[in-house]
């Protein structure tokens, strides 16, 4: 059985000024073909103005088992949000 081509993650910038956003992935033997496949797969209807492809193996993802220790500490720090502070309604622009 032959081997799959390597996997590439695809990011599309929908329009100027926006950040590239992950849309999915493609298989391709090299970076150039990955870009072509990404174009044909993900931007057939003017979905974007710029493409990034990144070897999937290069992406380091957090482990879901670590979610609690990674993200829970932010939960009780509500003072990081502007609504935590009571400013009288007649004080404007703040």
């Amino acid at each position: 059985m032959s081997k799959d081509w390597p996997l590439w993650e695809v990011f599309v910038r929908s329009k100027g000024g926006m950040a590239h956003r992950h849309v999915g992935s493609v298989h391709a033997p090299d970076a150039e073909i990955a870009l072509r496949h990404a174009r044909d797969t993900y931007t057939r209807r003017m979905e974007g103005v710029s493409l990034w492809v990144v070897p999937s193996a290069s992406i380091i993802a957090s482990d879901p088992r670590d979610d609690a220790q990674m993200f829970d500490p932010a939960e009780d720090k509500i003072y990081r949000h502007p609504t935590f502070y009571n400013i009288p309604d007649d004080v404007k622009h703040i």
Partner: peptide, 12 residues
């Protein structure tokens, strides 16, 4: 987005 809290905590 993050700066608004800075000003409000100061005013508080």
């Amino acid at each position: 987005k993050e700066e608004s809290f800075h000003q409000r905590q100061g005013y508080e």
